[in-house]
Simulated scan of single mutants.
Amino acid sequence: MRASLAALLVGVTLVLSACDNKPLQFNSTDITGQDYGKALNLPDASGKPRSMADFAGKVVVVFFGYTQCPDACPTSMALMADVTQRLGEDGKRVQTVFVTVDPERDTSELVGKYAAAFNPAFVALRGDEAQTRAVTKAFNVFFEKRGDIASGRYTVDHTAALYVFDTKGRARLFVRYGETPERLTADLSLLLQGR
Rank of each mutant, 00 (worst) to 15 (best):
M1I: 12
R2P: 01
S4V: 13
S4P: 00
L8G: 05
L8Y: 12
L8V: 14
V10W: 10
V10N: 07
G11S: 15
V12Y: 11
T13D: 05
L14Y: 06
L14P: 07
V15D: 06
L16R: 11
S17R: 11
A18M: 12
A18T: 14
N21G: 06
K22E: 13
L24T: 15
F26K: 09
S28I: 07
I31P: 03
G33A: 13
Q34N: 14
D35Q: 15
G37F: 00
A39Q: 13
L40K: 12
N41W: 02
N41Y: 04
D44P: 07
D44K: 04
A45G: 10
S46W: 09
G47C: 10
R50D: 00
S51P: 10
S51T: 15
D54Q: 13
F55T: 06
G57V: 10
K58I: 08
V59L: 05
V59E: 04
V60W: 07
V62N: 02
F63C: 03
F64P: 01
F64N: 00
G65R: 01
T67H: 04
Q68P: 04
C69P: 11
D71Y: 06
A72H: 01
P74I: 13
T75P: 04
S76K: 02
A78I: 05
A78D: 11
A78Y: 04
M80N: 00
D82Y: 09
V83E: 00
T84P: 03
Q85I: 03
G88K: 02
E89F: 06
E89W: 08
D90N: 14
G91M: 03
K92F: 08
R93H: 15
V94S: 02
V99W: 02
V99E: 00
T100S: 13
P103H: 05
P103C: 06
E104Y: 12
R105Y: 14
D106N: 06
T107G: 14
S108R: 15
S108D: 13
S108L: 15
E109Y: 11
V111W: 00
K113I: 08
K113C: 08
Y114H: 09
A117N: 14
F118M: 09
N119A: 09
N119C: 01
N119D: 15
F122P: 02
F122E: 04
V123D: 00
A124K: 00
L125H: 01
L125R: 04
R126K: 15
G127D: 09
G127E: 06
E129M: 14
A130N: 12
A130P: 03
R133C: 03
R133K: 15
T136A: 10
K137R: 13
V141H: 02
F143K: 05
E144P: 04
K145A: 13
K145M: 09
R146T: 14
D148W: 12
I149N: 08
I149Y: 09
I149T: 11
A150S: 10
S151E: 11
G152Q: 11
G152K: 12
Y154S: 04
Y154C: 04
V156I: 15
A161D: 12
L162E: 06
Y163G: 01
Y163R: 02
K168M: 08
K168F: 03
R172S: 01
L173I: 10
V175K: 02
V175L: 03
Y177M: 04
G178E: 10
G178Y: 07
T180E: 09
T180K: 13
P181N: 06
E182T: 14
E182H: 02
E182W: 01
R183F: 08
R183H: 14
L184P: 00
T185I: 07
T185N: 06
S189Y: 03
G194A: 05
G194D: 01
